[in-house]
Amino acid sequence: MDKAKIEELLKVDLLKELKLEGLDEPAKQGVVDDAVYIIVRGAWIKIFEALSSEKQAEFSKILDGSPEDADAILGFLKKEVPNYEDIIKEQIAEYKSVLLAK
């Protein structure tokens, strides 16, 4: 999926496009919850596969040694998977593309 398409999809309000704005709030939240779950899971697969074996080990050390160090973890992601935000965006866009298919 090209970047322009991704950006376009990111701007789409999924609930609105699916005509689910009339749902009650809990139901809306359920839709979003499920979406976020699937997107996060998919993003993590992508993020991790982007790392070499060595980097996975390095990342593991950070996670193991400094699990509460948000800066270290985020720093690693930014350094070693600089496009991690793009990965997440792509996952969001892909998810939306499936649900918005017509």
């Binding site: 990111l10 789409v12 309000d13 999924l14 979003v32 979406a35 976020v36 997107i39 997440i88 939306k96």
Partner: peptide, 9 residues
């Protein structure tokens, strides 16, 4: 957040 983006931010 992702949820923001699901809802078009």
């Amino acid at each position: 957040s992702i949820a923001d983006m699901v809802l078009g931010a």
